[in-house]
Amino acid sequence: AAKLDELEQLLKGVAMMKELTLRSTDYLVSFGECMSTRVFAAYLNQIGVKARQCDAFDIGFITTDDFGNAEILEATYPAVAKRLHGDWIRDPAIPIVTGFLGKGWKSGAVTTLGRGGSDLTATTIGKALGLREIQVWKDVDGVLTCDPNIYPNARTVPYLTFDEAAELAYFGAQVLHPQSMRPAREGDIPVRVKNSYNPKAPGTLIAKGRDMDKVVLTSIVLKSNVTMLDIVSTRMLGQFGFLAKVFSIFEDLGISVDCVATSEVSISVSLDPSKIWSRELIQQELDHVVEELEKIAFVHLLQQRAIVSLIGNVRKSSLILEKAFHVLRRIGVNVQMISQGASKHFWRDFVAIA
C-alpha cells in the first residue's frame, strides 16, 4: 500500500508539472521491480520458503547519475557484501533483490542500468559475495549459435569465454547484457545461463577460458537498422590528426561507434542508435553529426544496413572468412565494410552489408 501511495503521488506530480524528466522516468519505472519483488517474496514466505525483499538502491548499489543508463561504481561491491552478509547472519532468509536499479552517488536518486540490467545486478551481487557460480535464468536454453527467430535450428553453445559472451551481447545477442560479464570476469566466477521453461537443459557455462582446439565458429549475431558513415578527409594525403578530429566530434555529440575501418585519409564507421529513443531524434542526431563532420571531410551516409558478427577461433580466421564470403557471394550480398576485432583469444569479423 505504501508503494502504491508513493507511485500515485509521483504520477500526480508528473501530471501537474506536465513534464517527465529522465530522473523522474527512472523513479517511475523502478516501481515495477520494487512491487514484483515484494509480491514474490510474500509468495515464497506463504509457501514456507523464508525470504526477504531487498531494494538494490537500499543495499548498496551505487551508480553514476546517468539516468536511464547508469554505471555501477566500485564502492558497490563492499557495500553490498556488508549489507547482505550482515542480513544473512541476523536473518538467514533468501534475499529477493530488485534488478537493474541503483542510487546515484551525487543525487541520491533512483537510477536504472539500462536494457538487461538485471543480469548486471546478478553478476554484481555474485562478485560482491564471492560466489562459486552465478546463474542467469532466461526463456531460451542458453546462448545460441544464432537468433532462433531467423534460423529455427539454432543450437545451444555449451561453453563460452567472458570475452566471447560480452562481444555477442554487445553486437546484438539478446540473452545477456553487454556489461553483465564484467563483474563475473573480474571475480573469476563462472556464469551459467539456464532456461526457466526447460530447467533440465544444461544451458551455457561462461568462464574465463575454454578449449578452443575444435572450435571454428561459435556464434553469428545480426544487428539490423545500422547506419554507416564513410568519411574522407578534404585535404587528402598527409593530414595530421584527422582521426583524432573525427572521433572528438563523435565524443562531443555523445555518439557511440560500433565498428571502424580506417586508412590514412578515410574512415568508415557504423553507429549505435540504441541510446536514442525515437526515429525523429535519430534523424536529428544523424543530421547534426553529418553537419559537424562536413567541416573537415566529405561524408557519405548509408542507412538501413546490417552488421553480421562472426565470433570464432582466432587461429582459424582464414577458414571462417573463406566460408563467409563464399556464402555472401552465392546469395549476391555486397560487403561494404569489414572490421576485425583485436582479441588474441578469439576472432570476430563485422561485416556491414547492403
Rank of each mutant, 00 (worst) to 15 (best):
A1Y: 10
K3C: 14
D5S: 08
G13Y: 02
M16C: 13
R23E: 15
S24Q: 14
T25Y: 10
D26M: 15
D26A: 03
D26Q: 00
S30V: 06
F31C: 11
E33P: 03
T37F: 10
V39M: 09
F40L: 00
A41E: 03
Y43V: 04
V49G: 02
A56N: 04
G60C: 08
T63S: 05
T64W: 08
T64S: 12
D65I: 10
F67H: 02
N69C: 14
A70Q: 00
E74N: 11
A75E: 15
A79H: 10
V80W: 09
L84D: 06
H85C: 12
W88S: 09
D91M: 13
P92N: 01
A93N: 00
F100W: 01
L101I: 10
G102W: 02
G102Q: 05
K106Y: 10
T112N: 03
G114Y: 00
G114V: 10
G114F: 11
T123P: 06
T124C: 07
G126D: 01
K127F: 07
A128C: 05
L131M: 08
L131I: 05
L131V: 15
E133I: 15
D139A: 15
D139E: 07
D139C: 13
G142L: 02
T145V: 11
N149M: 12
I150G: 00
P152T: 06
A154H: 10
V157W: 04
L168E: 06
V175Y: 06
L176H: 02
L176C: 11
P178K: 02
Q179D: 13
S180F: 02
E186M: 14
G187N: 07
I189M: 03
P199K: 04
I206L: 06
A207T: 07
D213Q: 14
D213V: 07
L217C: 05
L217H: 05
I220A: 14
V221R: 02
M228A: 11
M228Q: 13
I231V: 06
S233C: 11
M236D: 05
L237M: 14
A244F: 14
S248A: 11
I249W: 02
I255D: 09
S256R: 13
C259M: 14
T262Q: 03
S263L: 04
V265Q: 07
S266K: 11
I267W: 01
D272Y: 00
P273H: 05
S274I: 00
S274M: 04
K275G: 15
W277M: 15
S278W: 08
R279A: 15
E280G: 03
Q283K: 13
Q284W: 05
E285Y: 10
E285S: 15
E285P: 06
L286W: 00
L286H: 01
L302V: 02
A306K: 11
L310I: 05
N313L: 12
K316H: 06
S317L: 14
S318Y: 00
A324P: 07
R329Q: 00
R329I: 03
R329D: 03
R329M: 00
I331S: 03
G332I: 01
M337W: 01
M337R: 01
Q340L: 09
H345M: 12
H345F: 10
W347F: 13
W347L: 06
R348P: 06
F350C: 10
V351C: 12
I353D: 08
A354R: 09
